[in-house]
């Protein structure tokens, strides 16, 4: 604790912090514990069992939906990362162009737009388009991917944009000065430097897609139900221990992924700290 803060105050502060963490984690822990409960009832402990995992892995509907969700999330993350990176380049590198205000508005709006409005709007667009040009036919993986890209692209843009803005612009100028053409500069210098942000953006888009219920509910059809829609319809009917098992698997996967990411970040941090200090350049 820094100067000026007494022991009691620090204790109170950390007490509140623990409370916040407890609030965040107790439900997840409870779910994990009950995924191993043989009993269907929440309040009754019927003994340790893997039964719900077994049932989950035999549920064709859930498995199909999970496979679809993975495909959608992968396609979405890839397209959103490409488009979002381009958008970030536009926002950071092209200072002035016609329609800049509209562009920044369209990037920022999906970040806060209630999903239910985006979902409704997307569906109405697809219906109107199908009427007008005959595409897309019905609700399919295509419509889900388009809708997901539209809202996750903004998140990618924000992540990449901040990294790009932090990047020393003279690095690109130096590469050009040494004879590299603009496209090559982007591929050889800019992309490797902002690569961590691209990865973060990709993961974010992947997560947003695989997690989305509301927008998917509008743009998915009977033939193409992603996992959250299937879970949602199960959950609306009440508690289902299968879902506990599914949740535990998700948490385990995310936990492992985060642990790896954290380790990578930590080791990079250490690298940076070895950096010798240099007096910062004065502005010209």
């Amino acid at each position: 604790m820094s100067t000026g803060w007494g022991r009691n105050r620090a204790l109170a502060l950390y007490g509140l912090l623990s409370l916040a963490y407890a609030f965040l984690y107790v439900p997840i822990v409870v779910m994990i514990i009950y995924s191993f409960n043989a009993s269907r009832l929440v309040t009754v402990w019927g003994g340790f069992s893997f039964k719900w995992y077994g049932e989950l892995l035999q549920d064709e509907k859930v498995l199909d939906a999970a496979w679809l969700s993975l495909q959608v999330a992968f396609a979405n993350a890839t397209i959103a990362t490409i488009l979002g990176t381009l958008a970030a380049v536009v926002l950071v590198r092209f200072r002035r162009f016609r329609g800049r205000t509209l562009f920044t508005g369209m990037i920022a709006a999906p970040l806060v737009m209630p999903e239910i409005i985006t979902g409704l709007a997307m569906l109405l667009l697809f219906v109107a388009m199908e009427q007008a040009i005959g595409w897309p036919q019905g609700r399919s993986m295509t419509t889900i991917v388009i809708a997901h890209v539209t809202f996750s692209l903004s998140f990618v843009t924000v992540v990449v944009q901040s990294r790009l803005a932090q990047m020393d612009a003279s690095l690109e100028e130096a590469a050009m000065d040494l004879g590299a053409r603009p496209a090559k500069v982007f591929l050889v210098i800019t992309l490797p430097i902002i690569a961590p942000a691209l990865l973060a953006g990709w993961l974010l888009a992947f997560t947003l897609s695989i997690d989305d219920v509301v927008i998917s509910a509008f743009v998915s059809g009977p033939g193409a139900s992603p996992l959250p829609i299937v879970i949602f319809s199960k959950v609306r009917l009440g508690v289902s221990p299968e879902i506990n098992a599914l949740a535990t698997i998700v948490v385990a996967l995310v936990g492992v992924a985060m642990a790896i990411a954290g380790r990578v970040m930590l080791s990079r941090d250490r690298d940076e700290r070895h950096r010798p200090t240099v007096t910062s350049p004065q502005p010209v």
Partner: peptide, 27 residues
């Protein structure tokens, strides 16, 4: 700039952080 017979040394040096000294010089 990439076709001019001039080269610039930047105030921030603008060394490519993901390349070694040799790779920077060879760029």
């Amino acid at each position: 700039p990439y076709e001019r017979p001039v080269n610039m040394m930047f105030q921030s040096y603008a060394l490519f952080p993901h390349m070694t000294v040799e790779q920077n010089v060879a760029f």
